[in-house]
Design a protein around this nucleic acid. Structure first.
Length: 295
DNA sequence: AAGGAAGGCAACCGCCAACAA
DNA sequence: ATTGTTGGCGGTTGCCTTCCT
């Protein structure tokens, strides 16, 4: 056992007593930035002390990671990023750090806040719609959010006969909101998988016919830089973006339970580091081919 | 214009795992 | 093997701003 260093503890207690909390002042920010740029990352409690900040190391770490880091992307999430967040959340659940690791320039805190506020907003919207006593009215309003009903969704997701399905068209036209499906219990994980497969296929179709779609007022601009210059690392498995394939694999999403109340790691089984981990690896390779991610 | 409600976001808290002594 | 420290993470809180009445 380590011998307790009484003097060090005394010093630490003195530090703790005068530690600041709450919002960071511009002066504190400047100190931390200057120190980090000069000395680089190290032990955060040392950084706090050496930078002359009356903050705990944890606080400094959080401030740097979430706000001061020079590579942070500020501003609202693009629709591409929103789609990706939704997709990644369907895989990782609330593992925000995992999601953030795949969105360059975004922090877990930022994504978490976005998810919580967006979901809250949409849940509220949908709840109020569901509570409406006039069913025909609510259906009309709902159709404004979701341009098709459950039956349509199932038909669309099952119909692979046409080269571009009606759902793909919806996706291309930005009229489809997968959030609504989950929030409203409109579909289970299998359906969501199908839908994202459609989205993926739709976007790929769009990729080649962007100009035509734009002329028709249909398409969004997905002509984005490729991801191939990036190398994404998961916690345990480095993922080589170059080796991606171009088709989403949701084969294991056969769980018919509703996503709400289910842990995603339970659904796809990556909590235990066996096959699930391998599956996750494959999934993540698929994700790196997400065609409409704007970096 | 004023006050309350809602939304957005930065920061804190508590837990856990890894590591060092 | 045990204990303390540190870093990382997700959940939560509370403040500030914007919107609505």
């Amino acid at each position: 056992m380590r011998k307790p260093d009484l003097m060090a503890n005394k010093d630490r207690m003195k530090d703790i007593i005068k530690l600041r909390k709450g919002l960071w002042s511009p002066d504190e920010d400047e100190k931390l930035i200057r120190y980090m740029l000069t000395n680089g990352q190290g032990c955060w409690s040392d950084i706090a002390r050496n930078a002359g900040l009356q903050r705990c190391g944890k606080s400094c770490r959080l401030r740097w990671i979430n706000y001061l880091r020079p590579d942070l992307k500020r501003g609202a999430f693009s629709s591409q990023e929103q789609h990706l967040i939704f997709h990644l959340h369907s895989i990782f659940g609330n593992r925000w750090s995992q999601i953030a690791a795949r969105l360059p320039g975004r922090t877990d805190n930022e994504i978490k806040n976005f998810w919580n506020s967006t979901l809250k907003k949409r849940m509220k919207t949908n709840t109020s719609l569901n509570n409406s006593t006039d069913s025909s009215e609510s259906k009309d309003v709902l159709s404004g959010i979701m341009p098709f009903n459950d039956h349509d969704i199932m038909n669309m997701s099952m119909d692979s006969s046409s080269s571009i399905s009606s759902m793909q068209a919806m996706v291309l036209a930005d009229q489809f909101d997968p959030f609504s499906l989950l929030v409203n219990n409109h579909c289970d994980m299998t359906n969501v998988s199908e839908i994202f497969t459609c989205m993926e296929d739709g976007h790929q179709a769009n990729h080649g016919t962007l100009e035509a779609n734009n002329k028709m007022g249909l398409g969004r601009d997905f002509s984005l830089p490729s991801l191939e210059s990036r190398s994404i690392e998961s916690d345990s498995v480095p993922i080589d973006v170059k080796s991606h394939n171009n088709h989403f694999n949701y084969g294991s999403f056969n769980n018919t339970d509703n996503i709400q109340g289910s842990k995603v790691e339970d659904l796809i089984g990556f909590a235990n580091h066996g096959q699930g981990e391998l599956y996750l690896e494959n999934l993540m390779q698929d994700i790196t081919s997400f065609p409409f991610l704007d970096f």
